[in-house]
Amino acid sequence: MPSPIFWFFALVMLFGATAVVLLPNPVACAMSMVASFVGLAGLFIGLNAYFAGIIQILVYTGAIMVLFVFIIMLLDLNTEKKRMPKMTPMFAGLGIVIAFTIQLIGVISATPGKQLPALDLPASAKNFDASTQIAKNLSSNTLPDVHLIGQSLFTEYNLPLQILGALLLVATVGVVVLSKKQIH
């Protein structure tokens, strides 16, 4: 039996993505992209990745898409004029995409499927010190997703995190430099 919640969010995501490709108006594209990302966040939450689902909504639909809509407003874009695209690149591009999709379906239908393994949270609480918040949450049968990610982020992934901070700083400075008016 197909699972209704999975297919609901998957279809929201895929229809939103299709609308991004097909709609001529850039603002409508941005809005359907928001719908697509909300569906994706629903799939993340269905996979017990609560933190990833929340940052998908906050960062992507909250920040990045607002930035896109803001730029569309600044550039004052109108609906794209209907113009026949060049046939050769169009068919070549579509051919690549269709070949990719056929190959994907072939590979996935040939690989043995794997069912969702059940989470036994009270049993995995034994791996943590009983006084920690992670162990307390696991014993009360809730997944402390943010605690687990935070612990990993600030111990194992500390150096990549700091590099990421430097990257964000460089990006900020780069954006300021790029958007300044050039003075000759």
């Binding site: 996979l47 990719f100 499927g113 969702l116």
Partner: peptide
Amino acid sequence: TAGLSQYLLVAGLLFAIGLT
């Protein structure tokens, strides 16, 4: 619940739509 292959299929379709 959905199986792994269904998630992979949906992700692959999303990738193909983006590539289009």
